[in-house]
Amino acid sequence: MMLILDLVLIAGLVTFATLTLTARATFSSIVLFISTGLLIALAWARLGAPDIAIAEAAIGAGLTGALLLAAWRRLQPGTVDPESDAESTSGEQQGAGDAKQ
């Protein structure tokens, strides 16, 4: 039973990592990266490392994600179209929210 859960977790991890690196839009890449980070935190919690799971969720996924989103937004061409603007704002909130876990 545990083995099946592990396998699902690992498969999910590898899938998310692949999706992160192959996604077409950079924005979705970053969001997928944050999700990968949270999955990794889950895996570490399962491997008996709750300290590190908290740290990964807060720093590895949350803060890194927030930084990536900030940088992504800064790299957008000067004219900010409303849609991507809205997206990035919600993304930042998500990043900050992740950091809280």
């Binding site: 992160t20 690196l21 890449s29 990968t36 895996a43 570490w44 008996g48």
Partner: peptide, 30 residues
């Protein structure tokens, strides 16, 4: 990849892989 943000993401994933191995090494001795 040539896009810098993605390259940084990829390097972060590499790092996560290394960390995963270390955490696994810790669990091995259970």
């Amino acid at each position: 990849t040539t896009e810098m943000l993605r390259r940084i993401l990829a390097i972060n994933i590499m790092g996560n892989g290394v960390f995963m191995l270390l955490i696994a090494a810790a669990y091995q001795h259970d």
